[in-house]
């Protein structure tokens, strides 16, 4: 897929924001005053920035509100509804913690649950697509959770959780890259299944339907970034996992200084962008079979 910056920012920023909301709802009830203000500002800031950047991907963003209507069948609609519900549920909780009497009964827990389900719904927008075998795998929601919980832990200053989830993230992401490379070949889709023509192995595209580009070739048969996969994986390992892990491990004993935590988060986010770029760029759509792109695993 064409790795649109709006989508990379949407999934990575909202992952951070809703990850932090999960920690705030479950463990942040004791925060009051300025510390509560800063944490909620970060959570609202990242999640809203993510949601807003998703609007830039739309052909007609002025009608985005309509996307809240089809939650019965559409994961994208569910994601929107859940995200807004999370933001709304946390509003009285945040106000009460910052300026009022503090933690409100059960509101944090409900909000945390909604935040966690939102992260799952974001992942399902991709994991539901049979047409992209690399995405259509249970590892995709697991990864989206690990990204959100690693980033959220860094933002919340939870050194132990951050260390644990960063190690898990590194392992699962690397395994997923290995699994992902075989997904298209294992999907059962081929030029033969796409056309029903000829003896297997003898079929080739003689002529494309058009000599230039099209929406389909630009959007679904993106080739550029795939060549840089090795470099992007190294970036993910160095910035996304190793550097924040070193910082976090040095602070396992006490609470993390907020400047240190911010540096760790900044490093981590560079790695997240690198791997998310690959997530989109390496996604191969089965429609490429009609354009002669035989299984490339």
């Amino acid at each position: 897929m064409h790795p649109a910056p709006s989508l990379i920012l949407f999934t990575s920023l909202s992952g951070l924001g809703f990850g932090l909301f999960a920690y705030l709802g479950l463990l942040g009830g004791g925060l009051t005053g300025w510390p509560a203000f800063f944490e909620y500002a970060l959570a609202y800031g990242f999640s809203s920035a993510g949601l807003l950047s998703s609007l830039f991907h739309l052909g007609n963003p002025q009608r985005a509100w309509r996307a809240l209507s089809q939650w019965r069948s559409s994961w994208l609609s569910r994601e929107g509804v859940l995200a807004l519900a999370t933001l709304l549920v946390f509003a009285p909780q945040a106000i009460s913690q910052i300026w009022g009497p503090g933690d409100l009964l059960l509101l944090g827990e409900i909000g945390a649950l909604l935040a966690l389900v939102t992260i799952g719904a974001t992942a399902m927008i991709y994991a539901q697509l049979k047409t992209v075998p690399r995405w259509h795998h249970p590892a995709v929601p697991v990864l989206f959770y690990l990204y959100a919980l690693s980033g959220g832990a860094l933002l919340f200053g939870q050194a132990i959780a951050a260390a644990l989830f960063l190690v898990l993230l590194g392992l699962v992401q690397t395994s997923y890259w290995i699994i992902g490379a075989r997904r298209f070949a294992e999907s059962g889709s081929s030029m033969h299944s796409a056309t029903g023509l000829g003896r297997t192995g003898s079929l080739r595209l003689l002529e494309r339907p058009h000599t230039g580009a099209s929406y389909l070739t630009k959007e679904m048969m993106f080739q550029v970034a795939r060549r840089r996969a090795v470099a992007l994986r190294r970036l993910f390992w160095a910035f996304g996992i190793a550097m924040p892990l070193v910082i976090v491990v040095q602070n396992l004993g006490g609470t993390m200084n907020w400047i240190v935590a911010l540096v760790a988060l900044a490093c981590h986010y560079v790695g997240v962008i690198a791997s998310r770029w690959l997530f989109y760029a390496q996604a191969e759509h089965v429609v490429s079979l009609y354009y002669g792109n035989e299984v490339s695993a």
Partner: peptide, 26 residues
């Protein structure tokens, strides 16, 4: 009138039957 041009339906179609119009955004 209700299409926001998110492109997800084109992604869900295995056959490449849908194209997002660059001018109208639908």
């Amino acid at each position: 009138e209700a299409c926001i041009g998110c492109g997800l339906c084109a992604w869900a179609c295995p056959y490449g039957a849908r194209e997002l119009d660059a001018e109208a955004g639908v």
